[in-house]
């Protein structure tokens, strides 16, 4: 249970953090005339955050507790016939 709560806290925190980071004022900190590996800093920043979100979502999807399976099998007797 504790693990599930912890997972849910993280699962909630990550998108919220992502939203805060790509919104002003934080995004403005990276809105400068600098280049990172040939990319304008702002582009590097937004795509890095984006990739970080994707990786986090991947990690979350691995860590997510089991769901959905039992519901299908036990409670939808008519459904299985359709599929």
């Amino acid at each position: 249970m504790t693990n599930r709560r912890k997972f849910e806290s993280i699962a909630f925190f990550i998108p919220v953090l992502g939203a805060v980071v790509i919104m002003p004022p934080i995004v403005l900190m990276f809105d400068r005339s600098l280049h990172v590996f040939g990319f304008p800093m702002i582009i590097a920043f937004l795509f890095t955050v984006w990739m970080a979100l994707i990786v986090s979502a991947w990690a979350l999807s691995r860590a997510a507790p089991e769901f959905g399976r039992r519901q299908r099998a036990d409670n939808e007797p008519t459904r299985e016939a359709d599929e």
Binding site: F7, E8, A11, F12, I14, P15, V16, G18, A19, I22, L46, W50, L53, I54, S56, A57, L60, A64
Partner: peptide, 17 residues
Amino acid sequence: YLAIYLGPTLVFTGWWF
């Protein structure tokens, strides 16, 4: 144009809820 794709990214990252 990036905002069009960042918004959905956030929604999918928060899929659990």
